[in-house]
C-alpha cells in the first residue's frame, strides 16, 4: 500500500482488517483522511458495520420443550 495515498481497495481491505480497532493509531491517519472524503468507502464501512449488526440482532430462543428435553437427557428433570 502506498501510505501517502491509499486507494479505495486499500481502504476497504483496511476496514475489514481493523473494524472497530486501531482506527485512531498513527498509521491509520491516511486511511481516515481518505474515508472522510470518499463516499464510496463510507458506504463500504457502514455496510460492514451493518452486516455485523444484522448477525448480532439475529438470535434464537430456547423453547420450553427444548429445555425439558435437555433436562431429561441430562437426568436432571425437575
Amino acid at each position: 500500500m502506498n501510505k501517502s495515498k491509499p486507494t479505495c481497495k486499500d481502504v476497504m481491505t483496511h476496514i475489514c482488517d481493523n473494524l472497530g480497532e486501531g482506527l485512531d493509531s498513527p498509521k491509520c491517519i491516511t486511511i481516515k483522511a481518505h474515508l472522510e472524503k470518499c463516499e464510496n468507502c463510507q458506504h463500504y464501512f457502514k455496510s460492514v458495520e451493518s452486516m455485523i449488526e444484522f448477525y448480532k440482532k439475529y438470535n434464537v430462543t430456547i423453547t420450553e420443550d427444548q429445555h425439558n428435553g435437555l433436562m431429561k437427557c441430562l437426568g436432571l428433570k425437575e
Binding site: 479505495c8 481497495k9 476497504m12 481491505t13 475489514c16 464510496n40 468507502c41 458506504h43 463500504y44 457502514k46 455496510s47 451493518s50 449488526e53 444484522f54 448480532k56 440482532k57 439475529y58 438470535n59
Partner: peptide, 22 residues
C-alpha cells in the same frame, strides 16, 4: 484470495437496516 472478495465497483448504500431483523 482475499483481494477477490472485495469488489470496488459494487459499493452501494444499503437501504435495509438491522433493526428489521427480529
Amino acid at each position: 484470495d482475499v483481494e477477490a472478495t472485495i469488489d470496488e465497483k459494487e459499493i452501494a448504500d444499503w437501504k435495509v437496516t438491522p433493526d428489521r431483523v427480529t
